[in-house]
Amino acid sequence: MMSELGKTLVVIGLGIFLLGGLLWLSGGTLKNFPIGRLPGDILIQNGHFTFYFPLTTCILLSIGLSALLWLGQAITR
């Protein structure tokens, strides 16, 4: 049980490390990436009030993280 947890944490850590390295090496070229401004994200502006809920972004991130965790679990078995 503990060795499986350790393997899973190592895989997640490596994934975060690789993602961080990718963002760092991109040198700001990903600043125009439309994450957070996708069609389906809810934006309501009314006078001095702004409400923003990134619905589509949340769904895509959930799918991506679920796939990453599934892949990490499949690798550690």
Rank of each mutant, 00 (worst) to 15 (best):
M1W: 05
M1V: 12
M1L: 13
M2G: 09
E4G: 13
L5K: 11
L5C: 09
L5T: 06
L5G: 09
K7V: 08
L9G: 07
V11H: 00
V11T: 01
V11L: 04
I12E: 00
I12P: 01
G13C: 01
G13V: 03
G15L: 10
I16C: 12
F17I: 10
F17C: 04
L18D: 00
L18C: 09
L19K: 06
L19Y: 07
L19Q: 09
L19F: 14
G20K: 06
G21K: 02
G21F: 09
L22I: 11
L23P: 03
L23N: 05
W24I: 06
W24A: 02
L25W: 05
L25K: 01
L25Q: 05
L25E: 11
L25D: 03
L25P: 03
S26C: 12
G27Y: 06
G28R: 06
G28P: 01
T29F: 11
L30Q: 01
L30E: 06
K31E: 14
P34Y: 07
I35L: 13
G36D: 04
G36T: 05
R37A: 09
L38W: 08
L38N: 10
P39A: 04
P39N: 08
G40P: 04
G40F: 08
D41K: 08
D41L: 08
D41N: 15
I42F: 00
L43A: 11
Q45N: 01
N46T: 03
N46I: 02
N46R: 12
N46S: 07
G47N: 14
G47S: 01
H48L: 06
H48M: 08
T50L: 15
T50V: 10
F51S: 03
F51I: 04
Y52M: 11
F53G: 01
F53S: 03
L55K: 10
L55D: 02
L55H: 07
T56N: 08
T56M: 11
T56S: 08
T56K: 10
T56G: 00
T57H: 09
C58N: 03
C58E: 10
I59L: 14
L60I: 09
L60C: 01
L60A: 13
L61V: 13
S62D: 14
S62M: 14
I63P: 11
I63N: 06
I63V: 15
G64R: 00
G64W: 03
S66C: 09
S66E: 08
A67C: 04
A67Y: 09
A67S: 07
A67M: 13
L68V: 02
L68W: 04
L69M: 15
L69H: 07
L71S: 07
G72I: 03
A74T: 12
A74M: 04
I75Q: 03
I75D: 00
T76C: 12
T76E: 12
R77H: 15
R77E: 15
R77W: 11
